[in-house]
């Protein structure tokens, strides 16, 4: 089977995903573009925040697949829900595709996955990053870092016990919820980094910690043992069935 992955996230997910493919034993080899697709290959691209995914990159990608018949079996699109609901985002894409193309033209499967809020929401699924109760007491060794970097988030929502996908932003936070999820995750990593618990800085351009095998295993544990991260589970289920 040959796959064409088109991601909305401009920086981090495109770096993370090839590693996750390895860990989940998704046995396809990456090629740079459709001209090099042969057997059990995949192409992985994103608009990089410059080319708008819906509709430019999407239509260009579908046109590319149509003009290379027989090469691609699955077009997999991964978008962020951001402030909308998963269903409505998915439907947006389906509608745009149906408006432009006839069913007959599309002789490949189109699978759409929506990150419910954004990639950092999924990453928040990793357990054991969240400060324990002892760390929040003022006599704790790294209490000062807890105060400066994580206190506000701690007061707001507990992602260890609760589903990160259901977290809303605080009422006084004026930016969109996806941005808050990024900030939460970024600050959580920073706190852990400063406590020297793990070497864990996270930025969109350097998402190294999310590429780590243990980290990925931690996320898989979360979906295997709880009802959390529904959108992540959907995506992983698809990949598991593909291998």
């Amino acid at each position: 089977m040959n796959y064409y992955f088109l991601l909305e996230d401009s920086q981090s997910f495109i770096k993370i995903l090839p590693k996750w493919f390895e860990y989940i034993e998704f046995n396809c080899t990456r090629v740079p573009d459709i001209s090099q697709i042969e057997k059990n290959n995949y192409v992985l691209q994103s608009g990089h925040g410059v080319t708008q995914l819906i509709t430019r990159a999407l239509f260009d990608t579908i046109d590319t697949i149509i003009s290379n018949p027989g090469k691609i079996d699955h077009l997999v699109i991964v978008l962020d829900a951001e402030s909308e609901s998963m269903e409505s985002r998915k439907q947006q894409v389906i509608d745009k595709i149906n408006d432009k193309y006839n069913q007959e033209e599309l002789d490949f499967e189109i699978n759409i996955f929506v990150c419910n809020r954004c990639i950092e929401t999924w990453l928040l699924g990793r357990k054991n990053l969240y400060p324990s109760y002892e760390e929040t007491i003022d006599t704790a060794e790294y209490y000062k870092y807890f105060e400066t970097h994580f206190r506000n988030h701690y007061n707001h929502y507990n992602i260890e016990l609760n589903d990160p996908e259901k977290m809303l932003q605080p009422t006084d936070y004026t930016s969109p919820v996806a941005r808050y999820h990024f900030k939460y995750f970024h600050d959580l990593c920073q706190y852990n980094n400063l406590c020297k618990k793990e070497k864990l800085k996270y930025t969109k351009s350097k998402p190294q910690i999310a590429m780590d095998k243990q980290f990925f295993k931690g996320l898989i544990n979360r979906i295997d043992n709880t009802e959390h991260l529904l959108s992540f589970r959907e995506f992983i289920t698809f990949l598991r069935n593909a291998t």
């Binding site: 495109i14 740079p32 573009d33 691209q45 994103s46 990089h48 410059v50 990159a57 260009d60």
Partner: peptide, 21 residues
């Protein structure tokens, strides 16, 4: 350089090639 094999705009091609490498 191996770009220009798709319907995407030139910049999309270039930047995804750089990312691949």
């Amino acid at each position: 350089y191996g770009i220009g094999n798709s319907q995407h705009d030139a910049y999309f091609n270039l930047i995804n090639r750089w990312e691949f490498e």
